[in-house]
Amino acid sequence: MSIPPVAVGLNAVVMAAGETAPQVLVVPRGEEEPALPFGPFDPARHRTFEIGLREWVSEQAHFQLGYVEQLYTFGDRGREAPLADLPSSEEARIISIGYLALTPDTADLPSGGGEWQSWYRFFPWEDWRTGKPAILDGQIEPALRRWIDEAETEGRREARRDRARLTFGLDGRGWNEERCLDRYELLYSSGLITEAARDRREAQGMTAVSRSMASDHRRIVATAISRLRGKIKYRPVVFELMPDLFTLSRLQQVVESIVGFPLHKQNFRRALDRTGFVEGTGKVLAGTGGRPAELFRYRRDAVRDTQATGITIPRSR
């Protein structure tokens, strides 16, 4: 029995805080869908997966990676592999290893490379910072209820209803910010987003409300958002997105932009004080239009050898 070829690809979800929303680094492709930096693993040239990944990001996006961690391995049959010189056989199985990279740098990139785009451009239903997104009441929830009603049996309708309640908080079940990937998977499997139209030709009227991405790259970004939203609660990774000096207000804004909802200011600062993660510098940021704000720094050396937790996320009521 012949064994079909396997091709290993590498892709990076590079995230930065941005001024008003979290940013993801994409590689524009003209009129085609944007893609993540992506390329094949070459065992003859790349000593490690991470070395190969860094080469592809540098070549395609003109960006040098800092903090990187392995995210997930994606191996679903039928995946596309844009931008990669992978085996052309139709029998080849594409295995893609995704990485999450965090950076405080959102400077403009050299011409011909990557560009920063708000991750809420690709996932507008995830941003609750100013209240419930209009797209939920206006398009997603009605479409999901139609999808539920279209099930052939009561058992399937109930299964669909339970899934929609769990992921999108229908019927007052509550919103869990860490279920970004689950929500994307539901929108895809119910045929409500552009990728479903492209892959299965069955999207149902939501193709213009958010930007699609090449291959399954939007699914990979959703995986990264879910990972980051969960991880900031048990590891201090949010500081990989911060500059050397920052105000506490800016730190809160960055955390809010990641989790997608406003925080209770006093409770956030009390919880931050208990962690010992930051220390004041005695310097202030002037020109803020109000009382000068003190600049803080992350105590990286002080927490490096401890069992550091993450940032407490107290919702604003």
Rank of each mutant, 00 (worst) to 15 (best):
P4A: 10
E115R: 11
E80N: 09
E91I: 05
E154T: 07
F49T: 09
R156L: 06
R299G: 01
K265R: 15
G290Q: 08
G191S: 01
D216I: 08
V238Y: 02
R227Y: 10
T281Y: 02
E279I: 03
A44L: 11
P262G: 09
P4V: 09
T223Q: 15
G138D: 15
E90V: 09
L192Y: 02
T309Q: 14
L241Y: 06
D105C: 08
S2E: 14
D199Q: 06
K132Q: 13
Q23G: 07
T167F: 14
R146W: 01
A12W: 01
L248A: 11
I140F: 00
V254M: 12
G138C: 08
R219A: 07
A197P: 06
A101D: 05
L102V: 03
W175H: 12
E50D: 10
G9L: 12
T247K: 04
F38E: 10
E90N: 13
D182G: 05
E19G: 00
W119P: 04
A7C: 10
L144V: 02
A17I: 00
W175I: 14
G9T: 08
E90F: 12
E31Q: 14
T103Y: 02
G30C: 04
R77V: 12
W128A: 09
E32D: 13
A214H: 00
D108N: 01
D108K: 03
W147V: 03
A222V: 00
L166D: 15
L181C: 11
P43H: 05
G131P: 04
L251E: 06
I3Q: 14
E141Y: 13
L251V: 00
Y67G: 07
R93W: 13
H217N: 09
W119N: 06
S189T: 11
E152G: 03
V68E: 01
H62K: 15
P34A: 06
I193K: 06
A151E: 05
R229Y: 03
G66H: 11
M15G: 05
T309V: 12
G287R: 09
V24L: 11
R218V: 11
A16V: 02
G289F: 01
L10W: 01
N176A: 13
G205R: 05
R269C: 11
E152I: 09
G39M: 07
D182M: 05
R201E: 13
R179N: 13
I135H: 05
R270G: 01
F268S: 11
D85A: 15
R160E: 04
Q60A: 08
E240P: 09
Y184Q: 00
Q252Y: 03
A159F: 05
Q23L: 15
D171F: 10
G114W: 07
R47W: 11
S226H: 04
E90G: 15
L248H: 11
A35Q: 14
G113R: 07
G131T: 01
G66L: 07
E91P: 02
E279Q: 12
I148E: 13
F63G: 07
E59I: 05
E177D: 12
Y67F: 15
E55P: 03
A214Y: 00
I51L: 10
G260L: 05
S88V: 08
L86H: 15
R250K: 04
E91M: 10
I232V: 12
L181S: 12
F49W: 12
V24P: 10
N11Q: 14
R200L: 03
P82T: 10
G112M: 00
A286E: 12
L136A: 01
V26Y: 08
E55V: 09
I148W: 10
R317G: 14
V13G: 05
